[in-house]
Design a protein around this nucleic acid. Structure first.
Length: 900
DNA sequence: CCCTGGTCCCAACTT
DNA sequence: GGGACCAGGG
């Protein structure tokens, strides 16, 4: 068949080995996505496998969407049923929304509802989690200075990713701190259970627990999914691994695709052993290596391979490319971060122009280690009048006004969601202050009610001053009215559907009527199209088996499974908040905005920020209308909001993309800028003490370099500001630079290579007063100009002022490493062993304490002399005499002191 | 109870 | 550059 001819022998083998476990070790750019999509197409077209029995799991919605589109192109007209291509998290949410109640256990007290999460659980994001930890710590009287909620949450997440429950964490804790954390973990879990909430980690964990504990549920999914594909297998963590094992059942039709050199998520619990030990897990496994790279030039591939070859923990492979030679790897050393960014902007501007002239579609990306680096690049792009796209950073759903409204929706869906309730109870202010809330929280604790329950109780028993009670009543009424809207539309639909002749066997059964509604709402009046997917649907592309379960137009295989569905404890009783059928989330939002005066109050503020917030809220209503058009329920809308990831807003059409190295995984660009190659930044200072962590940084570097198709440029700033206003600090070139073979490198920027005529700046929408013309770059100076506070007011676009490279900063190292020769020399002089030179940017402070009499340097106060020292280790405080600022007492751990 | 402004402390990657 | 927290005035 035609499409198989487009594959090389290894790829073809990977596609055609459909039965039994297969591990595809796919090097960067070796056509991994092609293999996965062709394999799916092959299963459907050649093997006659039903599409809906194929399940492919990816890490991001972006990857899932791309795969779905490509499969669709290959097998388009064949069937209305689609393979299920979904992220791990979305998949688990769907499984849990369907079957989580199979894990409920009967309450010990008769008459009380069963214990455990219900279908209308809410998903807690990181800020919700923080709030829970904080409130628990406050309740237990724990000092949040010594043990920050952040740390606690990090450790809880770590435990979850390694599938340890609080008892297990407690048992293996070796210090009082970990014991405390284990205790907090236990309390944290209780709070989430009380709120009927799950955090991100729980989505995976609970799905695994469900499949392990409920045999009939597991059977259902095992029958349903016969072919399993796992993308980015090197980044799976323990729960994901277990999920894979559960879903693989006895059939072992698992196809795992990955590259151990691209494992970059160990901090999220990814266990590289999963891929290294696949053959032990499945002794009958077939291993296929894809080693031809179709993406990059030989130079790029060689450079990247040379870097990653320094890692010890890897299988090793020989990537090769037919694209001989190529442009050398560029290297530019900028005096500081601003210039680094301006250089990139200048180079990209030139590239865009030239590529367009050649008739190509230019695409360039700037990659960085930390998202905060994006600011400088954004400013530079704006100065050059270049349109760019930023992936990550602050997402739409993290904006406060959006979170407010989403929290309202969550409370409406599930009033026991205490965290969301606390967020909205006085937003906008309605006279429910701290005092009132404290009373309510006390009442909740005392009665065992949720906060929402406590509100009702306080009103009933008149436990608060009249004024507070009145405010509370208003709030309670608002939520109840909104819930009535949901319930109202639910009841109405139920009525209609029962009346409208359901199938004879189902007559009169509430449960069946509900199923009928589900079918109705999911097919949205187009029964034939019930399983169709919308390529633009973000969040859970083509993941629609939840809908097809009960809808018409589903292949017969699922029908017999229906009878095996675990009994649903909630069906039959009146649902507290049932997965809501076709309720109009947009109308609900409009109702909320209207009743809370939210927009009106913003209008009265009459500031640009307020109007931008109003715009955002309109956007949210639009999103809700789209959701309504897809016939989604309220919880589907909320799942969407919870599960869209930063990486998902990558737009393949953008000419310039700025993003973190992590977000770049899986993408490719003709031109790549890899920025901030400095010790302490990349590799990041938090990784520099642990060899395994350094290896992960190196893999990250490898991922970044292998994104480049034609040209790769590495950059570094000699001085970098770590915080907005502090003095810049001298940097040391990243060790990864040393690992690039010198003959492959070419230094850029010291010659007048970028003289151009197109550097129009300060025009158009982004024109700003005081912005320096990049025309200055055409000066003799190899450096870009600074935006100097002292002079900026006199600068105008087009001003002929020439740039002056700024004199070395006071923190200059004795000898700046500002040329490639210097760097080579620097590294050569140290042989293989890398040691931090005299004025390091990231010398770990507090490793050995500073002693009285010692000279130190502080980023803000400059040089000083240690006067006295109190305490040791974490709590050590030192008093320093600064000539200009006098005596300062500093916590050594935080003060960022360097020896001077 | 609410709002404001000042101060302090912190800043990795993400589903 | 900004979020969290607090003090103090309305």
């Amino acid at each position: 068949m035609s499409f198989l001819d487009q594959l090389n022998p290894q790829q073809r083998e990977a596609v055609e080995t459909t039965e039994g476990p297969v591990l595809i070790l796919a090097g960067a750019g070796s056509g991994k996505t092609r293999v996965i999509t062709y394999r799916i197409a092959y299963l459907i077209e050649h093997k006659g496998i039903m599409p809906e029995s194929i399940l492919a799991m990816t890490f991001t919605n972006k990857a899932a969407a791309e795969m779905g589109e490509r499969v669709e192109k290959l097998v388009g007209g064949l069937s209305i049923a689609k393979p299920i291509i979904s992220t791990f998290h979305s998949f688990c949410v769907r499984v849990l929304r369907r079957d989580i109640e199979a894990m409920r256990i009967p309450s010990a007290t008769p008459g009380k509802p069963p214990i455990g999460h219900t279908k209308n659980f809410v998903i807690y994001d990181e800020s919700d989690q923080q709030a829970v930890v904080k409130s628990v710590m406050k309740r237990l009287g724990l000092d949040d200075k010594q043990l920050t909620p952040r740390t606690v949450l990090g450790r809880i997440s770590w435990a979850k990713n390694h599938m340890l429950d609080p008892q297990e964490l407690y048992l293996q804790s070796a210090d009082p701190k970990t014991e405390k954390i284990a205790h907090l973990y236990e309390e944290y879990r209780k709070e989430l259970r009380k709120a009927n909430a799950l955090d991100f980690d729980d989505l995976l964990l609970e799905a695994v627990r469900l499949l392990k504990s409920a045999a009939q549920v597991r059977d259902y999914y095992n029958r349903r999914f016969q072919y399993l594909l796992i993308d980015e297998y090197q980044d799976t963590n323990r729960p994901q691994y277990e999920l894979m094992r559960m879903l693989a059942g006895d059939r072992h039709n698992v196809c795992a695709v990955g590259d151990e050199d691209q494992s970059i998520y160990s901090w999220r619990g990814a266990d590289i052993r999963n891929i290294l030990e696949f053959e032990q897990d499945f002794p009958e496994a077939k291993i296929i290596r894809l080693e031809q790279n179709y993406r990059s030039t030989q130079n790029i591939l060689q450079a990247a391979s040379a870097v990653v070859a320094n890692n010890i923990r890897r299988k090793g492979k020989n990537l090769w490319t037919a694209r001989q030679g190529g442009t050398k790897i560029g290297y530019y050393e900028a005096p500081d971060g601003e210039n680094e960014a301006l250089f990139a902007a200048d180079h990209i501007a030139k590239y865009l122009r030239e590529a367009t002239e050649r008739g190509e579609t230019p695409r360039a990306a700037v990659l960085y280690r930390t998202n905060s680096q994006s600011r400088l690049f954004e400013e530079a792009m704006r100065r050059y009048g270049l349109k760019y796209h930023v992936v990550g950073g602050f997402s739409f759903y993290e904006r406060s006004e959006i979170k407010d409204l989403i929290s309202y929706l969550k409370v409406i869906q599930n009033p026991d969601d205490t965290i969301s309730l606390l967020r909205v109870i006085n937003t906008p202010t309605r006279g429910i202050g701290k005092g009132t809330i404290d009373t309510l929280e006390g009442l909740a604790l005392e009665t065992g009610l949720s906060l929402w329950g406590a509100i009702g109780e306080a009103i009933r028993r008149q436990l608060l001053p009249q004024r507070a009670l009145l405010s509370l009543k208003n709030f309670q009424q608002l939520i109840e009215d909104a819930r009535a809207m949901l319930a109202g539309s639910f009841a109405k639909q139920l009525e209609e559907n029962v009346a409208r002749a359901p199938s004879p066997a189902n007559a009169g059964s509430v449960a069946e009527a509900i199923d009928h509604i589900e079918a109705e709402s999911s097919s949205n009046g187009q029964p034939e199209d019930a399983t169709a997917f919308d390529p633009n649907e973000f969040g859970n592309f083509s993941f629609d088996f939840g809908a097809s379960d009960s809808s018409a137009g589903v292949p017969p295989a699922t029908e017999e499974d229906e009878t095996n569905r675990p009994p649903d404890p909630q069906i039959g009783s009146v649902p507290d908040s049932f997965p809501t059928p076709a309720v109009n989330t947009a109308d609900l939002l409009k109702f909320l905005i209207d009743r809370t005066n939210y927009i009106k109050l913003l209008e009265e503020e009459d500031t640009p920020e307020a109007f931008s917030r109003i715009e955002n809220l309109r956007e949210l209503v639009n999103a809700a209308m789209d959701s309504r058009d897809r016939a989604e329920t309220l919880d589907q809308f909320l799942d969407h909001a919870a599960l869209v990831a930063d990486a998902d807003d990558y737009d393949a059409r953008a000419q310039i993309t700025l993003m973190s190295l992590h977000a770049a995984k899986g993408l490719e660009f003709p031109l790549i800028f890899l920025s901030g190659l400095e010790e302490g930044l990349f590799p990041h200072s938090r990784t520099m003490l642990v060899p395994e962590d350094i290896e992960e940084e190196r893999r990250l570097c490898y991922v970044g370099m292998t994104r480049a198709m034609d040209q790769l440029i590495l950059t570094r700033a000699v001085y970098r500001r770590r915080y907005g206003t502090d003095l810049p600090e001298a940097s040391v070139p990243s060790r990864f630079l040393e690992e690039v073979p010198a003959p492959l490198l070419e230094e850029l920027g010291t010659r007048r290579a970028h003289v151009g005529t197109t550097t129009r700046v300060g025009t158009g929408a982004f024109a700003r007063p005081g912005v320096r013309s990049p025309g200055a770059y055409e000066s003799e100076s190899p450096h870009y100009s600074y935006e100097d506070e002292d002079q900026s007011t006199s600068w105008h676009a087009g001003d002929a002022t020439r740039s002056q490279p700024r004199a070395p900063k006071p923190t200059a190292p004795a000898r700046p490493y500002n040329s490639i020769e210097n760097i080579a020399e620097f590294f050569a002089s140290r042989g293989k062993k890398f040691t931090v030179p005299k004025t390091p940017v990231a010398e770990p402070t507090g490793k050995r304490g500073f002693r009285p009499g010692q000279k130190v340097r502080h980023p803000k106060y400059g040089e000083g002399t240690v006067y006295q020292r109190e305490g040791e280790g974490e709590e050590a405080k030192i008093t320093v005499q600064f000539p200009r600022f006098g005596l300062k007492k500093l916590v050594e751990k935080y003060a960022q002191l360097e020896s001077a």
